[in-house]
Simulated scan of single mutants.
Amino acid sequence: MKRRTAREKALQILFPLDQEDFNLEQAIQYQIDLEDRDDFLLQLIEGVVANQAKIDQKISDHLEKWSLHRLANVERALLRIATFELFFHQDAPPNVVINEAIEIAHVFGDDKSGKFINGVLSKMNK
């Protein structure tokens, strides 16, 4: 599986993360066939869930005039994935992680999502 595809799948799985009845294993089973399970995808998903409090704090520290819970679910999930990659996984260069998040935001978010994601992640990466 290509990394872009893994990031998109991770977004689809982590999208409902803030719902009370979120069940990680059910979300993974619903979105991924057994033959499509990919190490990188599972690292993203499990890493975001395991480090959610630290990731959310890092994102919150770089939001201006916004709170994490006011963000659209797509933007919040993308920021969590990219923040995990930037600070906890560090397997790809930061500019690649940021560009991927922006591109995925253009596909799954609204017209302003890419610009917003870029602004937050760029502040974090300084």
Rank of each mutant, 00 (worst) to 15 (best):
E25N: 10
K123Q: 15
R76H: 05
I45H: 02
F15C: 03
K112P: 11
R80V: 07
D36C: 06
S113A: 15
K112I: 12
F40L: 12
L42S: 09
R80K: 13
V97M: 04
L41T: 02
Q29D: 11
P93H: 03
F22W: 00
N118G: 08
F22Y: 02
L68D: 02
V49M: 02
K115S: 15
K115I: 14
Y30A: 15
F87A: 08
E35P: 10
V107P: 08
A101L: 04
R76T: 06
H106E: 15
N99W: 01
H106A: 14
D111T: 13
Q29R: 14
I81L: 06
I45M: 02
I28D: 09
I32K: 04
E75W: 01
L14Q: 01
W66G: 08
V48R: 02
I32L: 04
I81Y: 00
I45L: 03
L14R: 01
L14S: 00
L42D: 10
E64Q: 15
L44M: 09
S122M: 09
L121C: 08
I104M: 07
I104P: 09
L14M: 04
F108K: 15
F108S: 14
K54H: 12
I104L: 08
Q52D: 09
G119R: 14
E75F: 01
A92L: 13
Q19C: 07
L34I: 12
R70F: 09
R80C: 07
A105H: 02
D33Y: 04
V48K: 01
Q52V: 11
S122P: 12
D38H: 10
E85L: 07
S60P: 11
I102W: 03
D110I: 14
V107M: 08
H106L: 12
E75Y: 02
A82L: 10
N23W: 00
L86I: 06
D61V: 13
K115A: 13
E25L: 06
L24Q: 06
I13M: 01
A92T: 15
F108P: 14
E46T: 06
A27K: 00
E25I: 03
Q29T: 12
L79H: 09
F116P: 10
K112V: 12
A27P: 13
F22T: 06
